[in-house]
Design a protein around this nucleic acid. Structure first.
Lengths: 217, 217
DNA sequence: GAATCGCTAGAACGAACGCTCTACTCAGAG
DNA sequence: CTCTGAGTAGAGCGTTCGTTCTAGCGATTC
C-alpha cells in the first residue's frame, strides 16, 4: 500500500541531464542533489543537515528533491552514503595501487587523506562516519548503506594485502585494522587540525604490515 | 554585556544534592542533567539530541537545565564531553594498569570496550566522537572540550608506554595511533554489531607495540 | 515572621524542521 | 494541434527546535 515499487530511480543510470547534453557538462539535477547531500552529511552529519539546505546548495527545488527521492531524507541520505562509499573507494584504490611495496602503498593513502583534509581546512573527513554514528541502530536504510560501504572498503584492502603476499586469514584481519586506524586517525587529524595523526598512523600501519611480510615472502 | 562571569557553576564541586544527603544516594539535579546529556550525545549526537529530551531523561525541568547551564545547549554539551572524557579515561587507566605486559594491557582495553559495547546492544560507543564530528570547526566551546579530551587520553597512554620501556618520542607517536585505532575499531564494531573489530585491532596493536619493546628492553 | 536565595516549574516565542500538495513549464508523441 | 508525463516551483501543513520569561516552592537567615 505504500507504493513499494517506486522508492527511487536507484541505479537506472539514465543521464538525468537534459537529454543529449555532454556527459560532464552540468551534472543534472539528481546528481547535483546527491553530491550536495554527500558533502553536507560529511560536514554536518545527518540531523544537522536540512532538506531545504540541501536543495539550496544543490541549486534544485524542494519539489525536485522529493521527485527523485520519494523516500524522503532517509532515502536521500542512503544514496549519499553510497556516493561517499565510492568516493573513498577510489582514493583507497589509487593509494594502494601507487606502489608495489605494501608499506609505501599504505603511507600514500594516509598522505592523500591528509592532503585532502588540509585542503578543506580540516572539514572533509570520512564522508560517512558522522552519519553512521548518528544513525547506528536507528535508521535501518542508512545502516545498510554504511555496512555495505565498510564491507566494500574492507574487500579492497584485503585483496591488496593478499596480492602483497599476506595469507587469506591475516589479510582479512589486517584489512579491518587498517580501515579502523584510518578512520580513527582521520578523526584525530580533524580535531587536532594537523596532518600528523594520519601520517604517523600510516607509518605504524606500514610497520605492522611489514611484520607480516618479512620472514615470509 | 553578556554576563561572562556566570557561564555556569563549573567545577564548584558542591554537593548539588539536597544538603545533608548521602554522597551516592541520588545524584542531584546538575549531575543528572550532565549524565543524561552525555549518554544522549553518545547515542544520537549533538544535533539529534534536544534539550527537552535531555530534561525529560534527566527528570529535571527545562528551568533547571537553563539554571545550571545559562550558556544553553553548547555549554551543556561541552560539560557532557568533559564527563565522557573522564569516563573513558577511567576505563583506559583500568585496562592499561591491568598487566605489566604492554600487549596484554592493550588487549584488555579492547576487551573491556567490546564488552561494554555488546552490553549496550552496540549503542554506547565512544562517548564523544559523534558530537566531535558534528561540531568540528563550527562550535568552538565544544571543540575545545573535545581537544582536551583527546590530549588527556593521549597523555594517559603515552605515560603507560613510557613505563613499559618505550622511548619518549616513540611513545608519543604510538599513543596517538593507539587512540586512533581504538576509536576507529569501536566505530567498526558498532556498525558490524560484533566484538571482532575491537579484538582484532587489540591483537594488532599489541604486536605493533611488541615490535618496539623486543630487542630493546 | 519576614526576607532571601537556590532551584523548580512550565507556558509561550519565533524559527526551522520534514513533508505534502497543487500549479506550472515544456519537449516529444500522436 | 492536443496530450502526456517528467521535472520545476514554492506555499503551507503540523511539529519540534532552542530559548526566554514569570511565577512559585521550600529551606535558611535575620
Amino acid at each position: 500500500m505504500t507504493t513499494p515499487e517506486r522508492t527511487s530511480a536507484k541505479s537506472d543510470a539514465k543521464p538525468t541531464t537534459t537529454p543529449g547534453a555532454k556527459a560532464e557538462a552540468k551534472p543534472g539535477t539528481r546528481e547535483r542533489i546527491v553530491r550536495a547531500t554527500s558533502r553536507l552529511l560529511q560536514r554536518q552529519g545527518y540531523e544537522g543537515t536540512g532538506i531545504k539546505q540541501i536543495s539550496r546548495e544543490a541549486e534544485a527545488t524542494l519539489g525536485s528533491v522529493y521527485h527523485f527521492f520519494p523516500g524522503g531524507k532517509q532515502e536521500l541520505a542512503a544514496e549519499a552514503i553510497r556516493h561517499g562509499d565510492e568516493e573513498f573507494a577510489v582514493l583507497l584504490r589509487a593509494g594502494l595501487d601507487s606502489s608495489t611495496d605494501l608499506g609505501e602503498a599504505i603511507t600514500t593513502c594516509t598522505r592523500m587523506l591528509a592532503e585532502e583534509l588540509r585542503a578543506s581546512d580540516w572539514q572533509d573527513g570520512c564522508p560517512i562516519s558522522s552519519t553512521a554514528l548518528e544513525t547506528v541502530g536507528r535508521v535501518p536504510v542508512i545502516e545498510a548503506a554504511v555496512t555495505e560501504a565498510f564491507a566494500h572498503w574492507h574487500a579492497i584492502v584485503t585483496e591488496r594485502l593478499r596480492a602483497g603476499g599476506i595469507g587469506e586469514e591475516d589479510a582479512r584481519e589486517l584489512a579491518g585494522t587498517v580501515i579502523s586506524a584510518l578512520e580513527g586517525a582521520e578523526l584525530a587529524a580533524q580535531i587536532a587540525r594537523s596532518e600528523q595523526p594520519l601520517l604517523v598512523t600510516g607509518k605504524h600501519l606500514a610497520r605492522l604490515l611489514a611484520s607480516y611480510t618479512d620472514g615470509r615472502a
